[in-house]
Amino acid sequence: MPEPFRVILFIIFVMAFAGLNAAYLVWCERKGAGHIQRRIGPKEVGPFGLLQPIADGIKLMTKQLFLPKGADPLLFMAAPLMVMVPAIMSFMVIPFSETFVAREVNIGLLMIFAFASVNVLGLLLGGWGSGNKYAVIAAARCVSQNIAYEIPMLVTTITMVMVTNTMNLNEIVRAQAGWFFHWHIFRLDISLLMPVAFLIFFVCSLAETNRAPFDMAEAESELIAGAYTEYPGMGFGVFFMGEYANIVIGCALSVILFLGGWQSPIPFHPVGFLGVIWGLFWFLTKLYALIFTVIWIRWTYPRTQFYELLNLSWKVLIPISLFNLILTALQIKIFPWL
């Protein structure tokens, strides 16, 4: 297949995946929340409530769209797209399996971070464009949070780049081939703090995607619905899809950097089509396990206070991640044969 068409095909696939994924992650979330809280969750709409996301989708799409008073039309319309489009673009470089990737970009990691930064601007403009004070406060919070957590996240990422010598996501995964203890999270020989680094990265990705307990952008009990307060119908739906796409990307990055990506825990990898499926299976298993953890966390903890959140970043995560960076550099230099 010629390259451009393969890419276009993959974009279509990615968009479908992002949409369905968002819809069914919502289902998972509601169902998971239900069982954590000892209730059933969506059940009556289709078998096991599986048609629930579709019903929600239909409803959101046919909701009346209007511009709230005091909103800026351009910003109000553009903001959901600015959240959604970069998130979907980021899927382009994620290796779902060894060959199942839209484009192997040698700076894939950078690309994801670059697109993620557009996402922030989208939220900010959306909140500001709504002409609602709560939305503006939420947007401002969201941005300072994103900036604060980008630092430890990038530092941890740089550590991993230092270890693997590449920014190509697929290469990073390939570096973790073999038994499961070759995954970076278990490589204490590279850095003693590797599990901690994983934790830092995971916490940062929670914060970057505005998930509980860091859901400042949508702090329900404080700011009504945060930056989304004024968005009716599909505007809200698009934001939501963007949010869930971001969760997938955050978790996928954690999986790729620390949990071996599409590598299976045992050193066995069939070739050809079966290999694609095998890799896909392991990648998605790890990915959804991590996403389930995200959901699990959301339904367990209260929300952090905003300044505590910044304190956590500046006083805990950044020092530790910097220390980890130094430690990794030292360990690589001291044990160069590893």
Binding site: Q37, D215, A219, S221, R303
Partner: peptide
């Protein structure tokens, strides 16, 4: 109260 602070699940346990 915990719901105010952003935690939803304790509310349902308490309701239980």
């Amino acid at each position: 109260f915990v719901l105010d602070l952003g935690g939803f699940t304790p509310l349902l346990y308490a309701f239980d």
